[in-house]
Simulated scan of single mutants.
Amino acid sequence: MISIIVPCYNEQEAIPFFHKEITLVLKEIGEDYELLFVNDGSKDDTLKELKALSEKDSHVIYLSFSRNFGKEAAMYAGFCNAKGDYVAVMDADLQDPPALLPEMLRLLRSGEYDSVATRRVSREGEPAVRSWFARRFYSIINKISEADIVDGARDFRLMKKSMVDAIVAMGEYNRFSKGLFGWIGFRTYWMPYENVERVAGETKWSFWKLFKYAIDGIINFSHVPLSIASWFGTTMTFFSFLALAVIIIRRLIFGDPVAGWASIVCVVIFIGGIQLLCLGIMGQYISKTYLETKHRPHFIIAETNDESVIRLK
């Protein structure tokens, strides 16, 4: 059995196109399947569309959150409720081509891999600035963390159930799935493909949302920012002692020179900025720890057409 997890947020326009194409591909494969649509607190008619689909197609299962919990929570809810021997995560906008699934399944069945993941080899149609920052993110996070994240990696991947069980077992609240996929290991084959435009609707990922997501990923999988804060502190302490020694020597040799207010203000602002930067970095880690200790659920399912699903976890 194949489980397809589809996180949805305001995707009423794309869902009919996705359902039609994924159904054709899965029927061609010839295996039993389920389509797990996770409505992440959409404000449009996404839920209405999913309910209509579930009445026409018995393979469709919808999980509707009580509010918007984010894509990470939607994927986690799908992982917790997937029944298939093989589990895939796909976007509803058809930027993850369903036509790749047969080859991905063939590679998994060969026994050489536990997961087949996709990566975009081009970013055609994407703003140049966004592409540049994306490449820098992948370069930085691979250098400063233990997570293996390939440049251009998508959430679209097909996994064996054993790998999905390992992901579910990692119940941390602050989730960054691209990092989790790499951290748990398992044998992964990276399948390249050309970038595909959305079939309908608009992207929900603005530049600033992606930037925040990237910062979360770095903080969740690396302690290097804390180390940088420590290095800043150590360096500034050294220069402070050095400056103090220079001032004392000048005072003893040349007497009391006239001090300029501009230089003092510059030094105060510089040191104050470094201190605030370090406090901000530490604050991010403390806030993540604070959220983990609350043990709040990752998601709350308000409506579903399958009463066997886990509603809260």
Rank of each mutant, 00 (worst) to 15 (best):
M1W: 15
I2Q: 12
I4E: 11
V6G: 07
V6S: 12
V6H: 03
E11P: 11
A14C: 05
F17R: 05
F17P: 09
K20Y: 06
E31L: 02
Y33L: 04
L35D: 11
F37G: 15
V38F: 05
T46K: 01
A52E: 00
S58F: 09
S64M: 03
S64W: 00
R67V: 07
N68M: 00
N68H: 02
A74N: 04
M75C: 14
Y76R: 00
Y76I: 04
F79T: 02
A88V: 07
A92S: 07
A92Q: 04
D93T: 07
D93A: 08
D93V: 06
L94K: 04
L94T: 05
Q95Y: 12
A99E: 15
L100W: 09
E103D: 09
E103T: 11
M104P: 11
L105H: 02
R109C: 13
S110E: 14
G111A: 06
E112P: 07
E112H: 14
E112N: 12
A117W: 02
R119E: 15
E126M: 00
A128G: 03
R130M: 04
W132F: 13
A134V: 07
R135A: 10
R136L: 15
S139V: 04
S139T: 10
I141S: 02
K143L: 06
K143G: 06
E146T: 03
A147V: 13
A153L: 01
D155A: 05
S162H: 12
V164W: 08
D165P: 09
V168A: 02
A169W: 12
A169I: 12
E172P: 07
G179Q: 11
G179R: 06
G182D: 06
G185K: 10
G185L: 10
F186T: 13
F186A: 12
T188I: 10
Y189K: 01
Y189H: 03
M191H: 14
P192G: 01
Y193E: 01
N195W: 02
V196P: 08
R198Q: 03
R198N: 04
V199S: 01
A200H: 06
G201L: 04
T203W: 03
K204F: 08
W205G: 11
F207W: 07
L210R: 02
L210V: 11
L210H: 06
F211P: 12
K212C: 12
Y213E: 15
G217K: 09
G217P: 12
I218W: 00
S222N: 08
V224C: 09
F232Q: 15
F232P: 13
M236F: 15
M236D: 14
T237F: 10
F238R: 05
F239Q: 11
F241E: 13
A243K: 07
A243Q: 10
D256E: 15
D256N: 14
P257D: 12
G260E: 15
A262I: 14
V265L: 05
F270Q: 09
I271Q: 07
L276K: 00
L276A: 12
L279Q: 12
G280S: 14
G280W: 03
Q284E: 11
T289I: 08
L291Y: 12
L291P: 07
P297E: 02
P297D: 08
I301V: 09
A302C: 05
E303V: 05
T304Y: 02
N305Q: 01
L312Q: 10
K313A: 10
